[in-house]
Structures are given as C-alpha cells and as structure tokens.
Design a protein around this nucleic acid. Sequence first.
RNA 1: GGUCCCGUCGUCUAGUGGCCUAGGACGCCGCCCUCUCAAGGCGGUAACGCCGGUUCAAAUCCGGUCGGGACUACCA
Length: 527
Amino acid sequence: MFVRARLAYGHTLVDEDLLMPAPRLRFCPAPSGSLHVGNARAALYNWLHARQTGGTFVLRIEDTDADRVSEESYQGVLDALTFLGLDWDEGPGRVEPHGPYRQSERTALYTAVADALLKAGHAYGAYETPEELAEQRRAAQEANLPPGYAGGHRDLTDAQRAAFRSEGRQPVIRLRTPDEGTVAFDDAVRGPVEFAWKDISDFVILRADGSATYFLANAIDDLAMGITLIARGEDLLSATPRQLLLYDLLTRDGLIDGALDGAAFPARPKGATQPERFAHLPLLVGADRKPLSKRHGSVAVDEFRRQGFLPEVLINFLALCGWSYDATTERFTVDELVEKFSFERVGKNPSFFDTDKLRALNGDRIKELSDTELAERLQPYLAGEGLIAQPPAPRHQRLLVGLAALLRERIQTLAEAAPLVAFCFRDEVAYDDKAVAKHLGAATAPEVLDAAEASLSALGEWTGEAILAALDAVAGSLGIGRGKAFQPVRVAVAGTAVSPPLPETLALLDRDLVLARIRAAKELGAR
RNA sequence: GGUCCCGUCGUCUAGUGGCCUAGGACGCCGCCCUCUCAAGGCGGUAACGCCGGUUCAAAUCCGGUCGGGACUACCA
C-alpha cells in the first residue's frame, strides 16, 4: 500500500529497496467441479493478505488437464468467488498484464520451457508406459522400497531412445532431481521445513501427449506472474521442493525470460525474482477426520449459497477454519478480517468443518439485519419457491418486510423462511393432516372458530394488538387458555401447527382472507 | 514401507513454565419466559492421548509410546 501510494503521487522517486515490495498472491483453482469450501478458504486467506498489505491478488485458472475441466465449472468458480466477494485484481474479466490467465492458453510457453530444460540437460525423456510404471511401483511396495520413480531412463543412449520410438512409444519428460543434499524453505504456518533430495524422485513435467503437469505449469506461471507468496493446502507441502528446483533452474540463466520472449508472452513484473514465502494451510476434514469431500454432504460454496448462507458469514466461518485471533473473538466483519488476519496465527491441525457452528453464525447474522435488508435477501429464496415474483409485487414486498421481523428469530438460513411463511403467499392452504386432526378436531375448536370469526370481523382496527386482544377475549369468554384458543385459528389460517406469532401474522394478511380461511376450517373440522 | 506433519471439552479453539482446581464459542442437558416454533435469560455437562524425564513449579520443555493425517500419479 505504501509503495502504491508513493508511486501514485508521482513525487520524487523513493528508493524502492527501502520499502517492502507489495506482495503478489494468487489463487489457482482447477475448474474440475464446483468451488470446494477448502479451496474457497485458500482463496480467502490469499485475498485477505493481499488486501491487508496492498498487494495484488491474482486469479489463474489451472486447466491443463483437459480431461477433467469444464467450461461450466470455470464459470461456477468465478461465480462462487464473486458471491463471496473475493475480487481479484488480475485474471479473467479483469486486467491481464501477465496473461493470459488460463493455463490452457499458455501451452506454447510450457513447451518452450520444457524444450529449454531438455536442451540444458536438466530433463530427459522417459519411455515407460503407465502400465510398466504401475508394475514397478507395485514391485517396489512389495520389496518395501520407496515407490517413487527409480530413474530407469535417466541416461538412455540415442540408440535406446530410437528403439523405444520405433515401438511407437511417446516419452514423458522428467526433471532430474538432485541425488543428495537437502532443500529447505520457510513456511509461514509451519516454520522451517526441510526435505532430503534423495527422497524426491525425478518427476514428470510434460505428459506423453505433450501437455504440462501441475509442477511445470504452476512453477512457470508463478515466476511469469511474479508471485511472491504462495498460500495453499497442506496437501501441496511435499510438492514445494520440486517447485523450488524448477524456480531455480528457470531463473538461473534467464531461462524463463528467454522462453517468455520466445513464446511471445508478456514479460515478468519488474524486479520479479521467485516466490520466497510459503504458507501451507491445514486441511479441512469431515466428522470422520477424513479430508472434506462429497460424502460429507455439502462441500461446495454454491450449495451453501443455495441453502441460504450469507456470504459474509461464510467468509467469517471460513476464516475461522484454521485461524483464530484470540481467546474469545469469533465474529468478524470482512474489514476486520482484512485488518486482523495473519498466517502466523493459522494453526497446524486439521480443521473440522462444523456445519452446526456455521448455522449458528448465520442465524446470529440474520438477527442483525434490518427488516428491509432481510426482506431483500429473502427475495431470491422465496422467488425460487414460486411464492413471489422478482421483483416482487408491491403488496408482496410490504408483506415480506412485515414478515421479516417475525422470521428473523426463527430462521438460521434464508432457505428456511419459505416453508414457514408460504401460507401467506399462496391462495390455497396446504393443510397438515396431523395438525388438522389435533387442533381443528379438538372439542372446543368449533366454538373457538365461531367466536374468532365473529370477533375478528367486528374488530375496529386490523392490528396485531387488536387481534391479540380479540383472541384473548375469545379465550376468556370460553374459559380456555391461549393455547386452546390460538391453535385452531393458526391451523385454519396457516394449515400447520407451527407458524410465526399468530396475531402479528394475521395483521399482515387481508382480513377477508383470514375470515374466509376460518370459515373453511370449520367445515374441515366438522368432517 | 518411506518422508513430513499433527494430538486441549463431542466440535472449533485460547494457551509459548507460575495469571489454569484450563478460558470462549457451537452442540448437548435443565430451569425460567411463552399462542405454536423460535428467540432470549439463568444454570449445568465436558478436555490437556499415554508413560517417563527436566524443574520449586509443565497443557506448556525433552525423550519415548500410542493414535490420526498428508505426500509417495503422465490429479492438482
């Protein structure tokens, strides 16, 4: 932010070395399904840090694996991020100074880099078939040996290569990894991390069909886009050494810049070096402690949206999945998160995605909304049930605002509103058999309904208070309690034994409608 | 099997040697309130995986052990 501000004013040049450069972070989903809450959390943490530091948040689409990605899920990922309010500075639909930002459009670059790596002797073609590799893995497992690639085709002669080719084999390109020594890096959540090279076997950077793997494409693009801090799931922790090796090889002799230039892609940001900070986030798990997946129920952002969770609540909750601020604070606005978030306070243990807790937070947030805000947020959900049009008719709009006040304490998600108040919008009442039998079939029900009809039709003003007084008078004159008096009326009007508070709800409806339903209920009860 | 990581109430967590007979929140239970359902108020349940060691003092440090997880793909 500092850097930006100074440069924006365009005053005398500041010595850039004296300033912390603004970080560049990225979120790079593979569009092979809807946005998973675990990925959404990774996106959030990156976004929070970018916003906090005045850095740049880059969205890059990792669609190198043509078999698994789809245009539909690409759109879905964008929609989910937008719903959550995680706006990106660079990427699809925004500026693309180091673009394109979809890896499927960057394949020329990956091939160019792989070629250069091959020429420099850092990589080599390996001709084993997937079946042969599987067999080797199996054998290694059996012999209790490490199952990684043993480096069988590391030093093939030209003659051997030609022989494989004449068999019709297409090679994958593997990167040569060091045989000894260690790699170390500093992780903002895990502290210093070290791996031994002997445990890391030569890995594939180009598939037999010529497409780039994650390791290659991801490393190239992080370099090409000048990414400085990488925050992602812990499952990628062990991929880090391989990326570090790639960064090293690619920046060593200006290889990356040469390839960018050769393949006609934009140059790297000025002063870009290579990602230096990492933050590996604990996994999100289900109740069985296994990584969160479909069998745990809802895991996609758009499913939670459909169920009526508020985006700001999802953000709050996701932030809390693995991160805490102090002993007691757990409600945060987005702005507060931007201010308070830090990778240093991200925990190392896996986080259970507790839907009950999410519901509670959502309910709390709903209670804070004003009537009109709540009504507005409810609209799409009621419209989705066919209860109102969108935009709603003025009559429905007023009704909805009135109901919002009654609904507020009764729903934890927006989708829960529709079943509670459907009877206010529908012409036909959907009667619940059990409620009808119990309350309209009660001994006192007929006289209650008669008295209620009479006193409600005689009522001077149609307000909640007046209706309450009228119904109380009915109960009083019949010598019964409120419960016995209110329930038949409730079932008559709502069709069910559960509804928002009766007098207030009736006051929102047309008196004629209420009276008509009471009359209709008398016949129902008589049967 | 190998490499790495983790282990505080049912759950998420606070905790960096004395403030801890372990705090908060969700859940659960009870009571109050009450026209149904809620909401709200009050109260309660419940945890440092285990074993050793260091120390005047350990949830906190060390060792071991037992559990759990990630990775070990021509997925990302």
